[in-house]
Design a binder for these strands. Structure first.
Lengths: 250, 250
DNA sequence: ACAAAAGTGTTCCTCTTACACCCATGA
DNA sequence: TCATGGGTGTAAGAGGAACACTTTTGT
């Protein structure tokens, strides 16, 4: 029997999405202004990660899709469950009141499931987001966020850097056709390293799933670069073959 | 404003723990019998992963610790959040009634946060678990479990195999001092491969964080094996150094 | 012709893999 | 002395890292 002294029925669940994009130079994250219903205005904490409580009939992925689509529209998006933040004190006082008020409930705590998302960020998406009330902020320019969203963001950056070295998620950031240089710049930005251009090319072009197409850059005042695409089918086929003990650090 | 047609306040949250152990030959998972309050008995579905609803004031890790300690006692345990299962239909009908009844609540759904755990399984733990009403079942002998616990178990096995190649969690399964052979057998079991003994030794012994101690096996009727230990400090120090693009499959 | 970025090769070294026999102990 | 599992070495190949110059285009 569950302990009769404990309560189990006063908890809300939310999703909060950390959506990353790459503008060609820097990593950006999608933020929105908090709509302040009954909370005194604050200069420093009015930005937050997009999120929402989940309704009784909704699964988490649907909720995360709903939340992100509000700001990025119907484009395809890489979306993955990351981590649950469950400190009973993570939302309290006025923050909790704000949520209860906003959703018309009276819960004593809110757990949040953090989602990790990647999109292809371009001019059109930039302005779409703006019209919908969101902003893309370079990671270096992110200051204090509402609730515990700085903590979630830090976890997401960490997750991004790890996953980036494990799986070819780089291509989620780039348009369908891209140049080797764009790809290299992306790796350098995300992992915060410098990469030798010759070695990078050699490595990337040795991958069967990065394929040249019969198109080159146009209208640039230097040698036009070859375009490549990412072939997911080939990646999936080949990724089953390998077995490595990658924990090896000497 | 949250959509006033939706309800947000009728959801319970549970943790379910997949605890793995290695008995020297096979991987085992910790299961417990479901205490059937108001449900017709079933021959095939009376085993489940250990789990519990979380109370309003509890964080997830504490809940997972509480749940596992009931069956493994106070020994140290590797415990990590894995994935949330949030299908609104995942628990319904009699299953849902059983939970509401058991905990004295009336929720319309239960989300569960699956935890992933590893313990050092030995004779003492085996019998401790038995006294507490749990069982260790070899993975090959796990049949139909209650609720969606087979699904959770499959996800946990997958997670284990991936993590095993990424991080030195093998040592969480073994006693403080172990032989190379034990370690190799463990890798072969978890990853379901055969490993060349000479190459395995070479690799393992090249790792600064696997250290020989001045002790050998005793009472065996063959050359007694050297004992080694895992030095976590050295691992942590060295793991910061390396950077690799491990997504590379050709 | 010049500025600007694209593209190209070689050498050295480390790590991986495949493979077969001798060693130390208890019975 | 024998059965049992512990422990050892080498050669060939693949992948990673360091490093500097030529090519193609627009202006």
């Amino acid at each position: 029997m569950g302990n009769p002294n404990l309560k189990y029925d006063n908890q809300a669940i939310s999703v909060d999405c950390t959506v990353f994009g790459f503008d060609g130079n820097a990593l950006c994250v999608l933020l929105e202004e908090r709509r302040r219903v009954s909370l005194p205005p604050s200069d420093t904490e009015d930005l937050k990660l997009p999120g929402s409580l989940i309704s009784d009939a909704e699964d988490l992925l649907s909720a995360a899709n709903r939340v992100t689509r509000e700001l990025v529209g119907s484009r395809s998006i890489y979306l993955k469950q990351m981590e649950v933040f469950s400190d009973p004190q993570r939302v309290q006082g006025q923050e909790l009141m704000w949520i209860n008020n906003f959703y018309g409930v009276s819960m004593s705590r809110v757990l949040t499931v953090a989602f990790f998302a990647l999109v292809k960020l371009d001019e059109r998406l930039m302005s779409y987001t703006k019209r919908k009330g969101g902003v893309w902020v370079e990671l270096n320019n992110v200051h204090q966020l509402a609730l515990d969203h700085n903590k979630i963001l830090v976890a997401a950056i960490d997750y991004l850097m790890h996953l980036f070295q494990q799986e070819p998620i780089a291509f989620e950031f780039l348009p369908r056709k891209f140049t080797v240089k764009q790809l290299q710049k992306l790796y350098e930005t995300v992992l915060d390293v410098e990469i030798d251009n010759r070695n990078f090319r050699k490595k990337i072009l040795s991958l069967a799933y990065v394929q040249p197409i019969s198109e080159h850059e146009e209208g640039v005042s230097h040698k036009p670069a070859q375009y490549y695409t990412f072939n997911r089918k080939i990646y999936k086929r080949d990724s089953k073959k390998r077995f490595r003990l990658n924990f090896v650090y000497k």
